[in-house]
Simulated assay, not measured.
Amino acid sequence: MVIEQGQVAVITGAAGGIGRGLAEEAGARGLRLVLSDVDGQRLAVLVEELQGRGVEVTSLVADVGDMQQVDALRDLAVQRFGGVDLVFNNAGVIQTGFSWEIAADRWQRLLDINLGGVINGIRSFMPLLLGQQRPAQVVNTASLAGLVCSPMLGPYTVSKQAVVALSETLHYELATIQSQVRVAVLCPGPVASDIMTSNSVVGGATQQLDSLLDTSIRQGMDPRELACEVFAGIAEGRFWLLPHKNFKPALERRLCSILDETNPVFQMAEA
């Protein structure tokens, strides 16, 4: 898809991390923005900063796990800008711990946001994008956890692997109807953010993991750098957006294990 000034981009989870990087890069490219996040205070700060740079932007405090709130985000985009060209289903949270020790409400909340948010985004925006009868792009944020598994990240891994599966299914569906709408799935490794603040501590077994994850994420790829790679991938028409390449040996081991029907063995990712 050709990215042009004046196009409209909707970004969920926009107040920090990947979402903020996407918003800043999209604004710098002359796109008009419709931003959402559950953190109204940080969202307002971002909107003010972008407006100060001359970006046309509107926002809505919204929980992507609630279909009605996602519909309201879509309606805001149409009312303000007349349509939508790019949808970034990006909002996400994380949860660590033994899968059986994580409370049911924490499991459900994570699934509602990480997976439900993407489902709601597709169900809400896809009829609009298809009805416009012009090129459009959906980008669903998954993770390397959408392609490989590791211990102590059960809910997160389940949600992200489902996002990958849903995105690939949507890709095939859009091809079947020869649509001008395209979908891509973003599977990054560590990207600088404070996503670990969404984590709820479960027992003491994950304290070391939580600390390592938090450090790794905060020292991860700059969100603006990631956004540049995302927009490059959109321009090239790529479905798989894989900014971190060092995970591929782990993915190869997993695929070989499946094909060879051998039991999986976890190994730490290569540096």
Rank of each mutant, 00 (worst) to 15 (best):
V191S: 10
K160L: 09
L153V: 15
V163D: 03
G220W: 03
E173H: 06
N114W: 02
T215V: 03
E101L: 14
W100D: 11
R106A: 15
I177T: 14
I119K: 04
S198N: 05
V183Q: 09
S211R: 13
V183P: 03
Q137C: 10
V185K: 10
A145L: 03
R106Q: 13
M196V: 14
D214M: 08
Q178L: 07
D214F: 05
Q219L: 05
I195G: 10
I113L: 07
L130K: 10
V201C: 00
M221N: 00
G146K: 02
A142S: 15
V181I: 05
T176C: 07
A136M: 09
Q161W: 07
W107Y: 08
M126T: 15
V183K: 10
R134M: 03
D194N: 15
V201Y: 00
Q208N: 07
A232R: 11
C187L: 06
L128Q: 14
P135E: 06
T169H: 04
L226D: 01
Q219K: 12
P155Y: 07
V183Y: 06
L170I: 08
S193F: 11
F231I: 00
D105A: 13
P135F: 08
S211F: 08
T197N: 12
G146W: 04
G117K: 10
M126D: 08
T157Q: 05
V181S: 06
R224L: 14
C149H: 10
G154S: 14
G233C: 10
I122P: 04
A142T: 12
E168C: 04
S159K: 10
L209K: 04
P155C: 06
N114T: 07
E225F: 00
S150Q: 13
R218G: 02
A136H: 05
S167P: 06
L186Q: 12
Y172A: 11
G204H: 12
H171T: 09
S99D: 04
Q132H: 08
Q219M: 06
T206Q: 13
P188K: 07
A232L: 13
M126E: 15
T176E: 12
R109I: 03
A142R: 01
L111G: 00
Q132K: 05
Q161S: 10
V138P: 02
W100N: 05
I102G: 03
L128N: 09
Q219W: 00
A175P: 00
V202I: 15
V138D: 07
T141Q: 03
S200L: 09
V118K: 03
W100E: 15
R218S: 06
Q108V: 00
L213K: 00
G203C: 01
V230H: 06
Q108Y: 01
S193V: 14
T176A: 14
A175T: 03
